[in-house]
Simulated scan of single mutants.
Amino acid sequence: MFYLGIDVAKAKLDCCLLLDEASDKHKTKVVKNTPSGIIDLLAWVAKQNVSPEALHIVMEATGVYHEQAAMALADAGVMVSIINPAQIKDFGRGLAVRTKTDGVDSVVLARYGALLKPKAWVPPPQEARVLQALLVRREAIAQDLQRERNRQEKAHATDTPALIHKSLEESIGFLVKQLAQLQKDIDAHIDQHSNLQKDRALLQSIPVIGPQVGSNILSVIHNHDFGSAEQLAAYLGLVPVERQSGSSVQRLLARGKSKMSSLGAAMRKLVYLCFGVLKTQQPYQHDYLKNV
């Protein structure tokens, strides 16, 4: 197996192909972060006498910029692993790597793959990708709508020309229609796929989970491979990190940390319930403990 590290940026992919694990012999290549760039990368790898089946690519999860490359490479039959950037940073420290450049990062990623042999990333199914895209769009429209309403509120509080009021009203009306249509599209998409429809119904069997929260949790779980409820909670940023150095404890208590801790615990419990109903494919039972 040959290991190739890819440092992902918006416009380019810095690649390092590790040719010999023992000697650290490697070759590097920079390609565009586009479909044609992926074709160029695979052609370059082939020139090194490495077939797609013998290639293991390791890249960081870099916002949305890694997704297109990861999908294209997986579709080409290449084993792809997507790693949390924090893990790569710690690994680089362990190798005493102090320089931070795209080229160096790709070398570290290749060596990470060779040494730790991370598990393969499983691309989400098409229906999950479409759901995620629809939800991202809905969120963007909702934010635009809120901004326009804020502008309208300020316009009513100031001496604003009538033409501006008219423009704001038209813009808000358009965005409200867009938001309603997107919600219809989301519901229709879920209804068209029995697995999504069934899982959203299971999520909504939990009393506090409504259609919108249910759709968002549904998308997160169907677009990622979580092995446990704790992994899901960590992804959502709900796993606490204990810090008790210096005067930090006093400051946290002064800011009402106990209340926040309680809220965090409740949110983690809810995430565990969501993971549980989908894992067992059984609806929520409020009297579960009484029946045990």
Score class of each variant (00 low, 15 high):
77 G>C: 04
78 V>S: 01
78 V>F: 00
78 V>A: 01
79 M>T: 12
80 V>F: 08
80 V>Y: 05
81 S>T: 03
82 I>S: 02
82 I>K: 02
85 P>G: 09
87 Q>F: 05
87 Q>P: 08
89 K>S: 03
89 K>N: 04
89 K>M: 06
90 D>P: 07
90 D>H: 15
91 F>K: 08
91 F>S: 09
91 F>W: 09
91 F>R: 09
92 G>Q: 08
92 G>W: 09
93 R>N: 10
94 G>M: 04
95 L>W: 13
95 L>A: 11
98 R>P: 08
99 T>H: 13
99 T>S: 15
101 T>M: 06
101 T>K: 00
104 V>Y: 07
105 D>W: 10
106 S>I: 12
106 S>W: 07
106 S>P: 07
106 S>Q: 08
107 V>L: 14
107 V>H: 11
107 V>F: 14
109 L>D: 09
110 A>M: 10
110 A>I: 07
111 R>G: 04
115 L>Y: 10
116 L>Y: 09
117 K>T: 09
117 K>N: 15
117 K>Y: 07
119 K>S: 11
119 K>G: 09
119 K>N: 14
126 Q>E: 11
128 A>V: 12
130 V>Y: 08
130 V>T: 13
132 Q>T: 09
133 A>P: 02
134 L>H: 04
134 L>W: 02
134 L>Q: 03
137 R>S: 11
138 R>P: 05
141 I>V: 15
142 A>S: 06
143 Q>E: 10
143 Q>W: 02
143 Q>S: 12
143 Q>I: 02
147 R>A: 01
147 R>C: 02
147 R>S: 01
148 E>N: 03
150 N>E: 07
152 Q>C: 01
152 Q>A: 02
154 K>W: 07
154 K>D: 03
155 A>F: 02
156 H>M: 13
159 D>T: 11
159 D>N: 08
159 D>H: 10
162 A>S: 10
162 A>Y: 15
164 I>W: 09
166 K>E: 15
166 K>R: 12
166 K>H: 15
167 S>C: 06
169 E>L: 03
169 E>Q: 14
170 E>G: 15
170 E>C: 13
171 S>H: 00
171 S>C: 14
171 S>P: 09
171 S>W: 01
171 S>D: 04
173 G>P: 06
173 G>E: 02
174 F>G: 05
176 V>F: 03
176 V>D: 11
179 L>P: 07
181 Q>G: 06
182 L>F: 12
182 L>M: 04
182 L>Y: 05
183 Q>K: 13
184 K>E: 15
185 D>N: 05
187 D>S: 12
187 D>P: 08
187 D>Q: 09
187 D>V: 07
189 H>S: 11
189 H>D: 13
191 D>F: 05
192 Q>Y: 15
192 Q>V: 07
192 Q>D: 14
193 H>R: 08
193 H>L: 12
193 H>Q: 06
194 S>F: 11
194 S>K: 13
197 Q>K: 15
197 Q>A: 13
199 D>G: 05
199 D>E: 14
201 A>I: 07
202 L>W: 04
203 L>D: 14
203 L>R: 11
204 Q>H: 03
205 S>Q: 10
205 S>C: 04
205 S>A: 03
207 P>D: 03
208 V>W: 00
209 I>M: 08
210 G>R: 02
211 P>Y: 12
211 P>S: 13
211 P>V: 03
211 P>A: 14
212 Q>W: 08
213 V>A: 12
